[in-house]
Structures are given as structure tokens and as C-alpha cells.
Simulated scan of single mutants.
Amino acid sequence: MPRIASSCSTTGSASCSNSSAAGTCCLEAPGGLLLQTQFWDANPSTGPTDSWTVHGLWPDNCDGTFESNCDSSRAYTNLASLLSAQGASSTVSFMQTFWKDINGDDESFWEHEWSKHGTCLSTLKTSCLPSGSPRGAEAVAYFQTVVKLFQTVPTYDFLSSQGITPSSSKTFTLSQITSALKSASGFTPTVNCDGPNLNEVWWYFHVKGSVIDGSFVPINAPSFASNDCPSSGIKYLPKSGGGSGGGGGGGTTPPASGVPASFTVQALRSSGSTTGGLLSGGTWSTQTLATYKTAASGSGFTLTTSKGPCAVSSSTLTCASGNSASVFTAVSSGGKTLLAFNGSTTFSSDAVPSGTTQQKVFVGSGHSQTYQLVVAS
């Protein structure tokens, strides 16, 4: 079932363009400054080891103030069932992996975020919904939009691409972190710390049209926002793995026999040397490897990363939110477990990656550099 749609144009004025404008079904106000907020929880470890997790989507007023808990009559509960009943089970599965409560009560966390922040969005009032929309349809749209926005700002990948990865011993300056995020994304967010530990990022947007299906415009952190981190000595601690509460691996079906529930993927070249491996988008790189999660599918399994399901299309491997997952298999060879697609364990690229360079991964030996992909738990 497709999600509901608005009848709003996405080519008009963006939210916050007129501070005196009243909220309508097609103009988000007064909370037109939208914050997509993310957590990095290392102690206790929560969520995937190679991804930040969702905190929420907050409609802040354009002057640094905000409203909260705007409609108690729509403080829906049992949101996982509500979303699944309205055709958003894939959103629930994503949330179960990437929208985690530090105490393990994901459902209560989602309910809190919707009740406190979602009910304050003017474009999600029930009067703005298409005729005949089921109860709670605006909450379904809210969670779908939050997931969509979260996937556009992969903070872990942004930092990793600039050489900043979790470490038990290294420290970073505030300038290093904000500059890295600016270089990778084109925009400067707000970063927050718990003492010396990096633990939250806020990304800012305006929206043209409705939050349901509007055009989100990323912007720099506004002048009244401030970073809550020390200027130096910031720790970006590694997670110990897994996630807490709410369903072991995002509520997916069990992985195929002989393959771990999650693993990294190394590239084994024909020379016998291992050179890097796969990042979360499905590319070959020498940077910090991504975590791949498995789910059984027939005689094989599907793969998912923080970017989304992994698929092979036109012989090219990608992992992205819009993919329809392909089915892979595993082959034991020389004491190693190799990934295979349509029976082939050979993959290739146009060049060997180095530094921050990434190479597309193709199935088969049609490109100059051939290798095999090794499951490394």
C-alpha cells in the first residue's frame, strides 16, 4: 500500500521564509525549521556499529523556540502495528535496526517522538489528510519521512570519508568534526557531546510543501544554534556491536545456515592479498568496512546495510533505500566463506581503491581488477 500523498506544490516558498506566516496544509509553520537528529550511543552500545541511529524529526520555530505535545488526542500507541497495517512494514523493519532506544524500549521511544514532535507539524494535521485516510495515517507519513531524511544524512559515512572513525584512543577537535561533516555533506550541522564523548548530531532542513511528500532543503545550522561539545579532546568511541532491545537485527528472518547474522566483507584479490572491502553503499574501498546484515530468503539470503537493501542491477552491486533486495548465496572455499551471486564468486572493478577512493563492484570478471568477496565475522 503506498503512503498517503498531499496535493501541495513543492516549488513554492520554503518554510521559515516568512516569520509571520500561519501554518497551513502546504506550509509548515510555525515549526518550519526541521531538525533530523541522530544518536551515537557507544556505552551502552545501541544500533549498528557502522551507523548512527535516529533520534527524531523536530519542528522548531524559526527563532530557536519550539512547541511540543500539541495534540494529546493523537498520541498513538502500538506504532509498529499501526505502520504495518498501513503498508509500512519495511519502515518498521528499518526503525527496528536504526531507531533504537538506549534502554531497549523502542516502541515507547517512537511514541514519545511522535507525541512530542510529530503532533506539532501543521502539515500533518488530520484536516490536511486525503479524504478517507485511515486513523493514524499522518503518523505513518511522519515515520516514513523521518526514515527518508535520515538516509540522506549518513553521519557515520560522512565522517569516515574524511578519515574520522570510532577509536578507543584517538581524540578530535570540534573543528575537525564539523569541518569533516561540512566537507562530506555540503552543510554544517550541530554536534553535541556527553562530557567528552561525541553522541549527537542535528541536521537542519526547510521544507517546500507538506512534510508528507514535500521537498526538503538542507541548510547550515542557524546562527542561534550552538555546539555542545568541548573544543578539543572529543572522543568518538567505538560501539561494542549489535543493538539493545527491540528485536535482534531489526526483526528480520533468521540468516541462512552457515552465514553470520552480520559481518564485514573483505576483497580477496587473485594474488592472495586482501585489499579493503565493501562500504555501506556496496562499493569497494580501503576505508573502514561496513556491517552487512543477513536475512534468509529461499535457499540463499538477502543483505542490508545502513544505506538499505543490497541489489545487483545491470551487473552492478548497490545498497540503497529504494532497492529491491537481491538473493545471494555463500560458497566455502579454502577455509573461507565467499559471497556468490547467481553461482558466481567472481567480482570485478575498474581499479584497485586507495585512500578515500571507492570503486563500483560488478558481478563477474568483465572489469580489469577481479577478486572474491570474503565473509569476515
Rank of each mutant, 00 (worst) to 15 (best):
E107F: 11
L33T: 02
K182Y: 07
S51R: 15
P59R: 02
V327M: 07
S223I: 04
P30D: 04
F205A: 08
T318M: 10
S72H: 10
S9H: 12
T11S: 09
I219L: 12
S131T: 10
T302C: 02
G335V: 03
T37S: 12
C120V: 11
G118N: 04
L174H: 14
D50M: 11
G250E: 02
S15Y: 01
V146Q: 06
W203S: 05
G233M: 07
L124V: 04
A88G: 10
S84R: 09
N227T: 10
P353F: 10
I234Q: 00
N103V: 06
T302Y: 00
L79C: 03
T49N: 15
N192R: 15
S210R: 01
D63R: 11
G64W: 02
W284D: 06
N227D: 15
C310S: 13
L289K: 14
L124D: 03
Q162T: 14
P130G: 02
D41V: 15
T171D: 07
Y142W: 07
G364N: 06
A21G: 09
S348W: 01
W202M: 11
A330N: 00
A137S: 10
G163W: 02
S349N: 12
T252N: 10
A5N: 15
G64I: 06
P48R: 04
S232Q: 09
L27V: 07
V352R: 10
S108L: 14
N18P: 08
V352C: 06
T171R: 05
K307T: 14
G163M: 08
S19I: 12
Q144T: 07
G322N: 11
S244W: 13
P260I: 01
A14F: 03
S20E: 09
G335L: 01
R74T: 11
C319I: 04
P230W: 04
G23C: 06
G245V: 12
T46F: 08
T91V: 07
G322F: 03
P309S: 07
G334P: 04
T173W: 01
T46L: 12
T302H: 01
F143P: 08
L83E: 02
P189C: 05
F94N: 09
V312H: 02
G334H: 02
T253K: 14
K307H: 08
T345P: 00
S223N: 09
T65I: 10
K100A: 08
N103I: 06
T53V: 13
K336P: 00
C319M: 06
D60E: 11
S90C: 07
M95L: 15
